[in-house]
Design a binder for these strands. Structure first.
Lengths: 119, 119
DNA sequence: TCAATATATGAACATTTATTCATATGTTGA
DNA sequence: TCAACATATGAATAAATGTTCATATATTGA
């Protein structure tokens, strides 16, 4: 694992206090995984599209598939991921299942992403 | 592609105005790709760790590798991705290359992610 | 110019991921 | 109870991704 990992640069640029600061400020490994998983949810255009639709309205699975031009199964799989991340919630009304946003700051997160790429 | 895609739900839940709104508000396909790519950068614990270190200080590649306990090549590959996304910048000083943050709102984006997972 | 050091990069490999297909589950109305 | 419809899900497949290894490039000091 550390084959190519120099034990120390000749040119020392890291001071001891930085090593300590990093040790203090780096979140726990588990939290880093959760954080990466959270951003993974936004890292797919299908899921982003679903969220954009849900900004406008609660929608059923079938209509989501139709609106996005994809098959029902693909949408269902992605909705499961969105639900597991607690970004959407659903309610059943007869045969139909309606999905809606479960979190208020989704729009703001996507907005920040948009800001960054439009520079 | 649309094998299992119902042409229309029996139970109509999408009104025409929603179809139109979605057509208006959904960003262009290219922008959606850029947006997904942007979030992909945050979707990996190694890159998140690198960003956390850079919050504290400008650091050289060798020291990043040492601080994170990974080999130099892995770090270098990830730094390239971060640089392509314009999240970090670098400067060369002799043999050493120093990396630092290139964007102010990285902290705020990661912060929002942290907020969401700590609920 | 040459050896030593720091960083970058291409190829290979293992793992993860999104979509599709087939089918299961759940609900309604007849 | 049964057919029809809406949704969910497991397995298979293709594509994308992160790390490692080997090696290339770049810089310095002798």
């Amino acid at each position: 694992m550390q084959e190519h990992m120099a034990e120390r640069c000749d040119y020392i640029c890291v001071h001891e206090d930085l090593v300590q600061k990093v040790a203090e400020l780096l979140p726990e490994e588990e939290q880093l995984y959760d954080l990466a998983d959270f951003f993974k949810v936004f890292a797919d255009t299908t899921r982003i599209k679903i969220l954009f639709v849900l900004f406008e309205s609660e929608v059923c699975v079938c209509d989501l598939a139709r609106l996005l031009g994809m098959n029902q199964s693909a949408i269902s799989h992605q909705l499961r991921i969105l639900k597991q991340s607690k970004l959407v919630k659903n309610r059943r009304d007869g045969k139909t299942v309606f999905y809606s946003l479960a979190d208020d700051h989704i729009k703001s997160i996507l907005g920040q992403g948009m800001e960054h790429i439009n520079e």
